[in-house]
Nucleic acid binder design. Structure first.
Length: 552
DNA sequence: CTCGTTACTTAGCATTTCTTGT
DNA sequence: ACAAGAAATGCTAAGTAACGAG
């Protein structure tokens, strides 16, 4: 029997790293692995309800270096002002040129210096990088404490520009196994204590603190490659697959409720329809001091415009203030319902479209239809099912004409800003295509001359070198190659333009059941490394042994 | 039921690293 | 050997959703 789950996750490289650094923590390991049998017993059966681990050992978190004074004074009414270190630190944050200079200095450093600095950094980080959970050494995701700075936020955030203050050990709660040594507070904070020490094995976090900007709890957790994360990720996809079995019934139920006399039922039905059909997010209520964004339940009248006979025009800012614009034909009853919801509201455009509804009620209703169902499951279901269908309908593999993930990214509205260099890249491609076309023209002249047994002309502006006297066949072959190059570049150009605002990575990380991809690779003899990066391979280690016939 | 709290996933963009063409 | 460009990773903000107290 394999040691606890270490065999089915992590690359050999990771394992090598692990074993080399294990020596240092050998003592702790011993203690942790001694309870292995308990851990196995827990995970073999169902374990205790809500229990995430039995033993947990880690070294806490790594704080950023304290601020180092530079002593440059700022002028106020022409006079230099004395600043306290704290004031100077904040004053330095908005000074763009100063930061540019720091960046420039770093660039100037030689390769060697950079490497040395990096190694030094890695040595410090090594200690915090790992946790031992139920006897297995796993990577910690975010062991570096977020440094202080000026808060930007996304979109029109009311708190933009606020100072995000430094996090200290006294802000930090540590969660760790009862028998594990409590990590020491860093000495630079001279005798400061952790805020609290907990031994809560019903949660997956190693440390937490309150974000000073939004007063929300933030957590230090294990990396996506960990078996704990892998397990929950797999469960997410299994739940989405279960929805597949329930979906006919769910659709029948909400279709029936489109004409319900109970107004709440009717709103739930229409909202569920939109979440199912358009993969909208649930839409929790938001505070005044957050950017004004919406999801399904928080849509306003102005966000959904009915265009007769049965089209809805959506236009609103969703998560991260990303604009959702879409125009879709809907069921006539849904169209009518939306018209009615809109006209019911006499407060105008800013009124809630689903005024009787919130995510609590919606999810409570979904739970009645399928155990564990909530709004977000529909996004996973929709994305994964779409990919599965795309990959299995196209028999003509490897044409490379279309990116199957694009469809999914568009459904989920995963967008990205057009890169600064996009236009430059496109014109460069154009240039190269023009060059190749010139080459082609010249080859054509050469060909007709060669056919008549003449030497090629050597007056080319492109190629000053004297040409070889090639046979017509050889020239034709060259022409075909050049043509193929041009066509490839034209295709590249099209896809590049097509995908310039589409973020393909988000769905790959969060919505697409990796087993679909792995199985497809197995069926088509495509190495999985071509599709998943190193970190995705680690994250999806649990999916690698899937049967080639797997369907979502 | 509502509200604040808690714990977790999902997200785009900045930064770093790798690859490629010269 | 190197710079430019592409790809990968890192960072942390911004969501979802469950839960418990009143």
């Amino acid at each position: 029997m394999a040691p606890p789950r270490s065999g089915d996750h992590g690359t050999s490289a990771i394992r090598e790293l692990v074993s080399s650094s294990l020596k240092k923590t050998n003592k702790m390991m011993k203690k942790a692995t001694n309870s292995k049998s308990i851990a196995e017993a827990a995970s073999a059966g169902h374990g205790e309800e809500g229990k995430k681990w039995t033993t947990l050992v880690h070294n806490g978190v790594l704080f950023p270096p304290l601020y180092k004074r530079h002593g440059v004074k700022i002028l106020y009414k022409g006079k230099p002002i004395n600043l306290t270190p704290e004031q100077e630190e904040v004053a330095t944050m908005p000074i763009y040129q100063w930061h540019q200079r720091v960046v420039e200095q770093r660039k100037q450093m030689s390769r060697k210096e950079k490497k040395a600095l990096k190694e030094e950094r890695e040595e410090i980080e090594e200690k915090f990088k790992w946790a031992i959970i139920d006897g297995v050494k796993e990577q910690v995701n975010n062991f570096k404490v977020e440094p202080p700075g000026l808060f930007r936020g996304r979109g029109e955030h009311p708190k933009m520009g606020r100072l995000k203050k430094r996090i200290r050990p006294s802000d930090m709660t540590i969660n760790i196994g009862k028998s594990a040594p409590v990590p020491e507070c860093p000495i630079i904070y001279g005798g400061e204590r952790w805020k609290e020490i907990r031994h809560d094995n019903t949660v997956a976090w190693l440390a937490c603190w309150k974000d000073p900007i939004n007063q929300k709890e933030k957590y230090v957790k294990l990396a996506p490659s960990s078996s704990l994360k892998g397990r929950t990720d797999k469960e997410k996809y299994e739940k989405a697959r279960k929805l597949k079995d329930y979906i006919p019934g769910i659709r029948a139920a909400y279709t029936k409720d489109f004409s319900s006399k109970d107004p709440l039922k009717k709103q739930i039905a229409v909202a569920t329809y939109l979440i199912d059909k358009l993969a909208l997010r649930a839409g929790n209520e938001k505070d005044e001091d957050e950017a004004e964004t919406v999801g399904c339940c928080t849509l306003k009248v102005e966000h959904v415009v009915p265009l007769p006979p049965n089209t809805l025009k959506f236009d609103f800012l969703g998560k991260d203030s990303i604009r959702y614009q879409n125009q879709v034909e809907v069921e006539p009853l849904v169209f009518k319902a939306i018209q009615q919801f809109r006209s019911d509201k006499n407060q105008g455009n800013n009124a809630d479209l689903f005024d009787l509804l919130d995510t609590n009620k919606l999810n409570a209703h979904l739970k009645e239809l399928m155990p564990g169902l909530s709004a977000k499951v529909f996004r996973t279901y929709n994305a994964s099912l779409t990919l599965d269908e795309m990959l299995n309908k196209k028999i003509s593999k490897g044409t490379g004409d279309d990116v199957p993930e694009k469809e999914v990214a568009i459904i989920c509205n995963h967008q990205r800003a057009v890169s600064k260099s996009h236009d430059a890249k496109m014109s460069k491609l154009d240039e190269k295509i023009e060059e190749l076309k010139d080459v082609l023209n010249e080859l054509e002249t050469d060909l007709s001359r060669a056919k008549k047994g003449k030497q090629p002309e050597s007056s080319s502006t492109i190629n000053k070198k004297r040409k070889r006297n090639l046979s017509p066949e050889a020239i034709e072959k060259k022409m075909a190659q050049t043509n193929a190059k041009i066509e490839k570049m034209e295709r590249d150009k099209l896809t590049k333009e097509d995908l310039k605002t589409v973020a393909l990575g988000t769905s790959k990380i969060n919505y697409l059941d990796p087993r679909i991809t792995v199985a497809w690779c197995k069926r088509n003899q495509v190495p999985i490394e071509k599709i998943f990066t190193k970190s995705l391979l680690a994250k999806f280690a649990w999916a690698m042994d899937v049967d080639p016939s797997y369907r979502f």
